[in-house]
């Protein structure tokens, strides 16, 4: 049983960003389920859209105050000089670790079984430095920046995560045979931290081999720690083999704040048809909000929500199109609510 401190049952305020496209549909799903559970969570909702030039300061303030945020996707404008708001949020709040949990849900047939992978990705530097320039016409350079500071803190987070979640192995993904200094620095940091966790196995894998192994023997992976770009690819590959972005939860976390969102491809806002027909899959964000409840130290609410979602999947009668069904978002939500005990 969970023995709370007195007052732990007081509702927590959480910043909510419904976002664009299917965002409001799936965040709406979470709100309904939270309400049905009488979960001690109050949402403070803000209108943010991908075409804004910046995340409004009151939204940042709200997250700073509440420490925790739940968000739908924000559309990334293609072309144009505007940087993605998803990235702005991560930078502004220094959410340096991104976590995607990729696992098989019983009842959901996929090409692979025994997938149970947590991808922990460095979120602030590497290939996403934004430092690019044209040297002479027709020749452009892009800088990948790796620091000891960021490599160390992500490695620490990965091992700490593994330790606290009883995970047995951490695999560092790299391309240090080519990027000897940059990825070398990353590996060096991982190795150092690994020595402090003798109970956790540590190994390393080159990113191209990693992707090949993921599609042939995914059961060999447990927790993976990666620089920015590789993490993006590894998480999407792992999500793909276990059932797709529509079901994988995740979030971003830093020293003081956490933002929960659909795990892989958080920038996803679906397509118009999905929005019009109201058929977005809410499973990923529901599972992310269970992670959020656990993060807020409401463990039994987290368990109830997760159990109910898993029952709905196992039953297989209320699935959205990406999972081979034809249900609407609302039908899935109703099924989840009906399964709450």
């Amino acid at each position: 049983t969970y023995m709370p401190r007195p007052g732990d049952g007081a509702p927590r305020t959480v910043t909510l960003i419904p976002g664009d496209g299917i965002g409001p549909l799936v965040t709406g799903a979470v709100q309904q389920v939270m309400e049905a559970m009488h979960a001690p969570v109050d949402f403070e909702s803000y209108d943010v859209h991908g075409d804004m030039t910046a995340v409004p300061p009151e939204v940042i303030d709200s997250i700073r105050r509440n420490k925790v945020c739940l968000k739908g996707g924000l559309a990334t404008p293609v072309g144009g000089g505007v940087s993605s708001l998803n990235m702005q949020l991560r930078k502004e709040l220094d959410l340096y670790a991104s976590l995607v949990y990729c696992f098989n849900l019983p009842g959901l047939p996929t090409r692979h079984e025994n997938v149970n992978i947590v991808v922990i990705r460095e979120n602030t530097e590497g290939e996403y430095s934004g430092l690019e320039h044209e040297v002479v016409p027709g020749v452009v350079e892009s800088l990948k920046v790796m620091t000891k500071f960021c490599s160390e803190r992500i490695a620490k987070y990965a091992f700490e995560y593994a330790y606290l979640n009883n995970r047995k192995k951490v695999t560092a993904v790299h391309k240090a045979n080519i990027m000897k200094l940059a990825d070398g620095l990353f590996l060096e940091s991982c190795r150092e931290i690994a020595t402090k966790y003798p109970g956790i196995k540590y190994n390393e894998i080159i990113v191209d081999n990693c992707c090949m192994q993921l599609v042939s023997k995914p059961e060999q992976f447990d927790v993976m720690v990666t620089p920015n770009l590789y993490g993006n690819l590894v998480a999407n590959t792992a999500a793909g083999i276990a059932g797709g972005t529509g079901v994988m939860p995740g979030g971003n976390v830093g020293q003081d704040h956490a933002v929960f969102e659909q795990g892989a491809s958080a920038g996803n806002v679906g397509n118009e048809k999905l929005v019009e027909q109201k058929k977005a899959n809410p499973i990923a964000l529901l599972l992310s909000s269970a992670m959020m409840l656990r993060h807020l130290r409401f463990p039994s609410f987290a368990d109830r929500l997760e159990t109910s979602v898993k029952r709905v999947i196992a039953e297989g009668r209320h699935m959205t199109k990406d999972l081979g069904g034809s249900s609407t978002t609302q039908e899935v939500v109703d099924a989840v609510v009906a399964q709450l005990h």
Binding site: E127, V139, V140, E141, S142, L143, K144, V145, M146, T147, K148, F149, M179, L181, A182, L185
Partner: peptide, 8 residues
């Protein structure tokens, strides 16, 4: 503690 790698 800070390294750069160039992509061309």
């Amino acid at each position: 503690g800070v390294v750069e790698s160039l992509k061309i």
